[in-house]
Design a protein around this nucleic acid. Sequence first.
DNA 1: CAATGTGAACTTCTTCACAGCG
DNA 2: CGCTGTGAAGAAGTTCACATTG
Lengths: 219, 219
Amino acid sequence: VTAPGRKISDTAVRHLSLYLRTLEELRGEGTPTVSSRELADRAGTTAAQVRKDLSHFGSFGKRGLGYSVDPLRQELRQILGLSRSWAVGLVGAGRIGSALVEYPNFVARGFRIVTVMDRDPEKIGRRWNGIRIEDVSGLEERFRAMGVQLAVLAVPEEATQEVADRVVRAGVRGILNFAPVRLRIPREVVVNHVDLAVELEVLSFALREDGVTGSGKRR
Amino acid sequence: VTAPGRKISDTAVRHLSLYLRTLEELRGEGTPTVSSRELADRAGTTAAQVRKDLSHFGSFGKRGLGYSVDPLRQELRQILGLSRSWAVGLVGAGRIGSALVEYPNFVARGFRIVTVMDRDPEKIGRRWNGIRIEDVSGLEERFRAMGVQLAVLAVPEEATQEVADRVVRAGVRGILNFAPVRLRIPREVVVNHVDLAVELEVLSFALREDGVTGSGKRR
DNA sequence: CAATGTGAACTTCTTCACAGCG
DNA sequence: CGCTGTGAAGAAGTTCACATTG
């Protein structure tokens, strides 16, 4: 089915990702069938939201019964583009990069890290998970040679835009960026931004009225 | 000003965080004044959006002129709760944890990591940034002793809920969770969830129609 | 007279509620 | 008879447009 023209909101896609994870849990527990209500409770949305999110892509449930766990799980994998394998190039062999390489869900979801690049001579030549860390100077050729489709940028702030330009030149179609920098990128390349400063500040904002420890309040 | 009762959307707060970063850049460049238009271009929103976001908290601009960079920066720090210092407890001394400890913006924004905990005897006793890694068994006492207000959870999936229960018992008011697990937590505790699987799947979805490499298409 | 601050218009997202189907 | 799928209602968020002001 996988509706063609329709514009799907970012939120809806995030929901699908959560439903997929929940279905994988349910599958592990041997549950054959689940209602929109229960799926919602587990995933943290509402029953109506579950049905609406799914309705953009088709009708997967049985009235009076609910959804069959495994078939819906497969549908969602398909919808999210996970029933294929993605060739991922990682730039930046620092802590965040290493966290990703060891992240178990990464591989389970079809994301294969095919190359790791860094500029630090200390790191170049080492192996992570069997993958040799290469000198970033050869990025374009290496990415093309390995057929990289998706780049993960975990490099220092000041290097980020330059690296982004280069991975785009190397033909990458999507970027996951961990640096606190807004990238200037051609429209056809999809960027997703994980910004730890923003995440912390969202928390800080939510708690800002609580017991103040630091400097006295202004105004 | 910091309007009292009004409900501020998550998106608006995220925008403020981006504006703050942009203002810090502008300040570094010595720019004294900025229009909503320019701020928007740099932060990736629109001029109208900038004005609306700010209007929830007061009037900070001068008509015909724009916003004074440094005063607005200070306002935003205040609004986001960054003009104070937050005592942060980190649970999980793995890769993600270490990435956070070394993250420079962390400290710059007033987030002080005051304790690090892990369950691995190999790690306990080591020092990170001068902070001794403690045995997680003493979490509650340690968190209380150090006045931890905000917990960062970077522990394996299966341990996450238990650790969450314990940090709540220890009086924490906010949690930043990196594990792919929806936490069951009392309403008054604020949770923010950074979910790498979701971030990857959002990218995967956006690119799902591109050249398929993996298994042949289903249906 | 340039650029803010803000109601009003518009658009998008969420929730409701119920007909219809298994 | 229970639960989905979905239009319609309602809420929330975004963009428009302009009167206002330093």
